[in-house]
């Protein structure tokens, strides 16, 4: 089975670990071998959080530079920073809503204008899907459902062999009742924006 390497990049608190875990669950339910790798601990205190899902025959749990098939970025600056994982064929899916790090607030560096960030990403990556994920999450009724929006966009891009129904089944079985409706709505908004 051909290996698909999906890298998720985000900021602590954005929920990308849950997104990668659910993708792993969906692979399991479809009978596709998958390894998910996560980083816990110090990195979660507002720092950069990277996870990866390798679907197919590969047994290595991580993705080397230049070898991602898909990069899902939850924050534009972090998407740009993670472009080293990509090559010309990589599908880049990125949120456009910015979350400036505190280093910017205290004057250690400046956050480039988001248009500049997006121009750089578009100028380099082969295929770029961009969306205002936070806006869609808010529209879905839960600001914390950004990860569902991004998961929806990933499935909508068609870059991996998991369909919307399979993904939604996994989301339904692992979401608390109170958040189910907003999570599915967020997923659908992301899905449509990427189709």
């Amino acid at each position: 089975m051909e290996t698909r390497r999906v890298v998720f990049i985000g900021v602590g608190g954005q929920g990308n670990l849950l997104a990668s875990r659910l993708l792993g669950e969906a692979s399991l339910s479809k009978g596709i071998p998958a390894v998910v790798s996560e980083i816990h601990g110090m990195a979660q205190r507002g720092g950069i959080v990277e996870s990866a899902v390798l679907m197919g025959d590969a047994t290595s749990p991580i993705v080397s530079n230049g070898e991602a098939d898909v990069l899902v970025g939850f924050e534009p600056l972090e998407t740009l920073r993670a472009l080293g994982k990509c090559n010309k064929e990589t599908v880049v899916i990125t949120n456009t809503h910015t979350l400036p790090p505190f280093t910017v607030s205290i004057g250690q560096g400046t956050y480039p204008p988001v248009e500049e960030i997006m121009d750089l990403i578009r100028g380099k990556a082969g295929k770029v899907i961009s969306l205002d994920g936070n806006k869609m999450a808010a529209e879905a009724g839960n600001p914390l459902s950004l990860n569902m929006v991004m998961l929806g966009a990933l499935i909508g891009s068609g870059a991996i062999s998991i369909g919307p129904d399979d993904m939604k089944e996994v989301i339904s079985s692992s979401t608390k009742e109170a958040f189910l409706e907003s999570n599915l709505k967020a997923f659908d908004l992301g899905l449509k924006s990427a189709q």
Binding site: V11, G12, M42, A43, Q44, R45, G46, G47, I48, N65, G66, E67, L77, E78, L80, R81, L83, G84, C86, N87, K88, P100, P101, F102, T103, V104, Q108, G109, T110, Y111, P112, L120, K124, A125
Partner: peptide, 22 residues
């Protein structure tokens, strides 16, 4: 031949995002 990565030479210095107290 290692897979060819993207040319990132013109990406400016990006502000760091170290972990922080909550």
């Amino acid at each position: 031949q290692a897979p060819e990565g993207l040319d990132l030479s013109n990406v400016p210095d990006l502000p760091g995002r170290p972990p922080n107290l909550c």
